[in-house]
Design a protein around this nucleic acid. Structure first.
Lengths: 215, 215
DNA sequence: TAGATTGTTAATCGATTAACAATC
DNA sequence: TAGATTGTTAATCGATTAACAATC
């Protein structure tokens, strides 16, 4: 229904629905919640309830129109708009992200990339020249940036986050192994790759130990 | 208590506790669940319940001993053991991961890296030579590999996952924008960076729209 | 129309929080 | 000992699943 009060967890699933409908384009005209559930390894109830938060996209007795859902979910996620992001930290990970073709495909454009190291400053990464991090605040004051991505070492991350926050950047996507706390005016997504490696590793070892039963 | 029946969600939080206690080493001898909760932006109840799944690590009237918890959580997560992983896909992201110092620090060692492109095969990445992906199955038959990391394009990912599964690799960490389904004998963690970017972006736009209320 | 399938409400399940007795 | 703080059980909250009337 409305756009308010949608549970966080539903929002986190939204891009996956989008990805699914995108992949179905051309392959079929419509799909029922049951068929989609089988495809996505989830439940039909969850799909219907999740999608109903955004409007009545389905049709009784018919299902969901693939082309329409792709378009609607794309709109909801803002995939049709150009949005700017900057990267702080031009190391290997920063460079990998700067060159992700998928980011470009969903409308995200790299506006700037910053580093502290003289050896990388001036290099061209993803069509953008690496600038000294001292200029980050000034840059943000002049350019509208929706998302700041942090790919610095852990020690530098909180300082960079403060600069992003002070400059009014919309939100932060943090890859440094430190937790950046969100505030009322700025959401943050922390992606801790080592944490995911370790929890996966625990699950594997747990399976090896007993004859499993985590679930 | 036991090692069975621990909720998945607790396991996902475990590395964060480990990281926290690691950061506290040398700074203080002990910490109470309440102090830790403040530090981690979570609740004392959750911390006590989470940790109690693995044993009585605390002491009434004292709290948790930092040095001890760091050691215990490290053991539980297997940080003390050497574990091998391979990477399929020697693009920018694969190379970034191969060079993560944090992976090495938690005991993970790159055993092999594979690609389909002749231009990168033979290159040295993180001290390991890139091999042709045709040799992946044979390599896995000879080397014990706990985790297979997928950093290929979406199209190649399911095929690589099948090779990992058939070879009996412990688990998969997948970065390709496609969902690899876990099976009873092999856990999978899908990390979809674009999905996280989009859901964060939605939250930012939602804040801009109304005067917010997602939560 | 009859059959299919949605959107939505109610029932169930699981996770988080609160409370407190045990105990250092 | 008295005070502090855990481990654990009970209460609450939220998310998932099941059921079904609405309706294409």
């Amino acid at each position: 229904m409305g756009k308010k009060g949608i549970p966080e967890i539903v929002i986190e699933r939204l891009p996956r629905y989008y990805r699914c409908f995108r992949a179905l384009r051309g392959k079929r005209e419509k799909i029922s919640s049951q068929e989609l559930a089988a495809e996505m390894h989830t439940s039909a109830s969850q799909i219907r309830l999740d999608l109903s938060h955004f409007g009545g996209f389905g049709l009784q007795g018919y299902g969901y129109n693939v082309e329409e859902l792709h378009a609607r979910l794309g709109e909801i996620l803002g995939v049709d708009q150009t949005q700017y992001y900057v990267i702080a930290g031009a190391g290997r990970l920063g460079r990998a992200i700067a060159n992700f073709p998928v980011f470009q495909e969903v409308g995200f454009t790299l506006a700037g990339i910053f580093d502290i190291d003289d050896a990388v400053i001036g290099q061209d990464i993803g069509g953008v020249r690496v600038s000294p991090v001292e200029g980050l605040a000034a840059f943000l004051a002049e350019h509208p940036v929706r998302i700041g991505i942090i790919t610095t070492p852990a020690e530098a991350a909180p300082g960079v986050a403060d600069v992003f926050r002070a400059a009014g950047v919309g939100g932060i996507l943090n890859f440094a192994p430190v937790d950046i706390a969100p505030t009322d005016d700025m959401p943050v997504t922390n992606i801790h790759l080592t944490d995911r490696l370790l929890s996966l590793s625990w699950r594997i070892m747990n399976r090896e130990r007993g004859q499993d039963d985590t679930r």
